[in-house]
Amino acid sequence: MNIIGAFGASRHAIRDLQLFRDADTPAVAALLAACPVIRVAQDEPVEDGLRARLYIVLSGSLGVQPATASGSGEIQRILPGESVGEQSVLDDAANLDAITALEDCELLVVEPDLLWRLIDEADGVARNLLRLLSFRIRAANALLRRRQKLGEFYRQLSMNDGLTGLYNRAWLNDMLPAMVARSRQDGTPLSLVMIDLDHFKRFNDTYGHTAGDTALATAAAVIRNALRPSDFAVRYGGEELMAILPNTNRVLAEMVAGRLCGRLRETVVFDDMRVALPHLTASLGVASLARGQDERSLVEAADAALYRAKEAGRDRIST
């Protein structure tokens, strides 16, 4: 980076610079005439972060990576006529953004005192600066909204099991306490159905893990499709699944569990085998929220009921 002359002796016109558009007056020209013009080679850093300065691109382009987005890979491209560093001058603070030449370029350097003088003495400069800052605020807000939407998308993605598409334990840990609290507050019932595919290890050992994954995904789809839109299907872990039934008492929950048990028993996993869930059925345990129970004890109650269904011979429901 080296000084190649003063702006007044350069070939560049004031009217081509966004900050001075409609402010191309003899007074502004006189103030800018002695400002240095520097040449920066491609990939060379421009700002050392120790001084507040305004840089206006005369030729080439700059890349600016905001300090708040460090490491994110998001770089703003500054083209001829555009400027960078206004905020640092207005804040009277060091510019912490990483500024690098994306190609060989020439820059007009305006010191803070001179910029303030231009703002005070040229109405057009003040208007252009306000317009520029307003545009950047809008752009920053739009970027923030996009990041929020993307963050919500990935958050939702992290709440689903990749194999079955059902909600996962992370989702359950977030949502079940809220459902229990809502049930208590509204005085409405809440039931769980814990579902375990019988002898699933044997199925995996016989048909292989790829076939086991297909069977598990099929069983999950059966459960999801058999529930109401207001119900929730969760992969609790391994071959253990769960149905959460808001506004559902124990009697209705037992009916839902019976329907799930029957549908799983009848579902064909592999069309070419012509058998219903080969060597796979399900044991189901039902529990409803009782007075004084929290989400953990509710899950434990459903799990205990599931264990009783297994002890009774599997392929059945228990409460």
Score class of each variant (00 low, 15 high):
N2H: 11
I3P: 05
G5Q: 13
G5A: 10
A6R: 14
G8I: 03
S10A: 07
F20A: 06
P26G: 06
Q42L: 09
Q42W: 00
E44N: 05
P45Y: 00
P45G: 03
E47L: 11
L54G: 02
P66V: 06
G73K: 06
G73S: 05
G73I: 06
R77N: 10
L79D: 08
P80S: 05
E82T: 01
V84E: 11
G85D: 09
D92E: 15
A101R: 00
A101C: 01
E103P: 03
P112L: 13
W116L: 12
D123G: 12
D123T: 13
V125G: 14
R138Q: 12
R155V: 03
R155I: 00
L166I: 13
N168I: 05
L172N: 06
L172S: 14
N173G: 13
D174T: 15
M175D: 01
L192N: 05
V193P: 03
H199K: 13
D205T: 12
T210Y: 05
A215K: 04
V222K: 02
A226C: 05
D231H: 00
A233V: 12
G237L: 14
G237R: 15
M242A: 06
R250Q: 13
A253W: 03
G262M: 06
G262P: 00
D272M: 07
D272R: 10
H279G: 13
L280V: 13
A282R: 08
G285A: 04
S288E: 05
A290E: 14
G292D: 01
D294A: 11
E300H: 14
A301Y: 09
A302Y: 10
A302Q: 09
Y307D: 05
K310D: 10
T319G: 11
